[in-house]
Design a protein around this nucleic acid. Sequence first.
RNA 1: GCCCCCAUCGUCUAGUGGACUAGGACGCGGCCCUUUCAAGGCCACGACCGGGGUUCGAAUCCCCGUGGGGGCACCA
Length: 493
Amino acid sequence: MSIQPARTRFAPSPTGHLHLGGARTALYAYLLAKKTGGQFILRIEDTDLKRTVSGAEQEIMDGLHWLGLNYDEGPDIGGPHGPYRQTERREIYQTHAKTLVDNGHAYPCFCTPERLEKVRQEQMKNKENPHYDGTCRNLEPDEAAKRIASGEAYTIRFKMPHDGVTVAQDHLRGDITIENKQLNDQVILKTDGLPTYHLAAMVDDHEMKITHVMRGSEWLGTFPLHVNIVRAFGWDEPTWVHLSVFLKPSGKGKMSKREAADAMKDGYSIFVKDMQDLGFTPEGVLNWCGLMGWGVAEDDVMTVEQMLDRFTIDSLTPSPAAINFQKLDHFNATHIRLLTTEDLAARLKPYFTREGLNVNDDVLLKIIPLIRERLTTLDDCISFGAFFFKDEVSPVSDELIAKGLDAKQSAEIARKAYEILAAQPDVSHERCEPPFREYVEASGFNAGQVFGVLRVAVTGQKVSPPLFESMEIIGRDVCLKRIQNAIAILEKM
RNA sequence: GCCCCCAUCGUCUAGUGGACUAGGACGCGGCCCUUUCAAGGCCACGACCGGGGUUCGAAUCCCCGUGGGGGCACCA
């Protein structure tokens, strides 16, 4: 069976940070396009000048690139159906709006925002549904033309049928039927000459030959309107896929500013821009949010390649999904373990550097196998590996005292450790461990006590990667120096 | 208030009328491994929202409730 190449698009507004929901929408669109040998397009929907945030567009592009969701056409790279920024497509929308007016599917409206607001208040007071009252719907074309010519400000409204129903087909939910009288005559072209989403998105999706429109389910309410607009133009409809929304971790309501702040407090974020700083990998983030709203029966740890293999729009789910950050940890850790040593080293280096540590690349490569399966996030490398790159460590004196022992006994262990180590020609872990085992046998101290003192002395911390392997990398001289320092601390107690 | 959508373990989900003793993953609990912390292995706990139908048979189809979500702008 041959598959038609799909053209998909991610079409965000540059009004804020790129968030998880957007990342997932982009991922699915990317997956579908790549899987079918089609194109994935980035389009910037910046028609609301008041809400446009400077820098937001760049953040979107950076976020997509970081995730590896590279688009084939977009505002910065162009393409055959550009421009890809809606503010640069003004005339296209105006032409199309005029077409709709000419064929009776739309009309100019001279109602002021103030009047509209008054009407709305009135309707609410009368317990009516807020809706446009249709004042300009039946204006004589001549009069309308006269008012336009006189310079009166106007919008263009889409003329929804009053009777009957509109049936729109969503790929995940089937037919969605709504009575036309529920729909409003929405503004499709604003007084500033720019279109609203309803017109802009429909025109662009058609002009850009989009085959599958994937967007958030918040558009379900205006979906029938959109279908009517497309039909008014006489265009073929794309396949519509309305993705479920992400709910806050409690499952009650969608993410809000408050939850975003709470997440940040716990070391998580709903914004793509924060993910790298927090130590998350694109692989982990993609796998994690890709699985919220996508049913995969088993083996759900997937690289993008594997997702490509398995992705179908039929396996997407229509119900809302609660965000679960613990699962992000899991996927992130799993993908870290999947990375090659060289790759992981390159990704870890910036985190060490960020801490002001001087990274020796050979050492870095050597410690990867020791810390890899201990990392949940990339920045965990600091707590597990910073001591490899420090000239000296500063153990907490209390931690140098082994469990069940006192300072004097711990000092005794440290002195003996120094002695054993000093006697070794090298500190390979194969060579070092046996004499320490013998000491444990002979001394009457248990392994936990002996290795505990040594661990804190050498690494400066109670939790560390495997001790002898670590010592081997640190080197004998530095180890001896650190043990000496520990002895000094213990003797002072 | 009105409209639309959704509904399987705590969470993400598999399931498309018999293969369901409802499967997987995360988390949680236990055990094994173990010098710490992890990783790994094994085991356990844990769900079809309720009520009516349809059918020989329903998690699966229909209706009604209930719950949840989204929308009702010259915002997207």
